[in-house]
């Protein structure tokens, strides 16, 4: 992908809202967690994500092509997932007093991440014809 900063943020928020919510709605009962918790986790990915995107944007400046390979979009799940877990575990995520079981968190987080990543790498272009030519901006 060849995002611009505002495109990164917009794409992340929109996809988490639509795709992330759908996946969360389906996965929550399967991992026996509360909706309150899983949606708080989803919100956490979105809010922290804005900060992460700033960092990615900075790192991208070192790339001559000013691109962000698909693989990076997949692998960044690791640091993001870890940080959010540490915050959950430390009780620092608002509205979540006790962290969910690690396995439940891992499954939920991975499912959301994969779904968002897959949609961003193709199907997104079907309704949003101009999206890929505008650095991921939707507005």
């Amino acid at each position: 992908m060849v995002p611009v900063l505002s495109g990164r943020i917009q794409t992340r928020l929109v996809l988490l809202l639509i795709v992330g919510s759908a996946v969360t709605a389906v996965v929550t009962p399967l991992v026996v967690a509360g909706y309150r918790t899983t949606f708080a986790v989803l919100a956490g990915v979105a809010v922290l994500g804005v900060g992460w995107e700033l960092l990615y944007h900075l790192l991208m400046q070192f790339r001559w092509e000013k691109d962000w390979p698909s693989l990076f979009g997949l692998l960044t799940a690791v640091p993001e997932g870890l940080l959010l877990w540490l915050l959950l575990d430390a009780g620092l995520v608002p509205t979540v007093d006790t962290a969910p079981p690690l396995a439940a968190y891992a499954i939920h987080f991975t499912a959301v991440w994969l779904a968002v990543w897959l949609v961003a790498n193709g199907p997104m272009r079907v309704p949003f014809l101009r999206w890929r030519f505008r650095g991921g901006r939707l507005a």
């Binding site: 060849v2 995002p3 611009v4 991208m60 000013k66 890929r132 030519f133």
Partner: peptide, 17 residues
């Protein structure tokens, strides 16, 4: 060396803008 005739973001990203 360059993958395409211009840096990739010319077709949609930062350099296009």
């Amino acid at each position: 060396y360059q993958g395409f005739n211009y840096p990739k973001s010319v077709w949609g990203g930062q350099l296009k803008a």
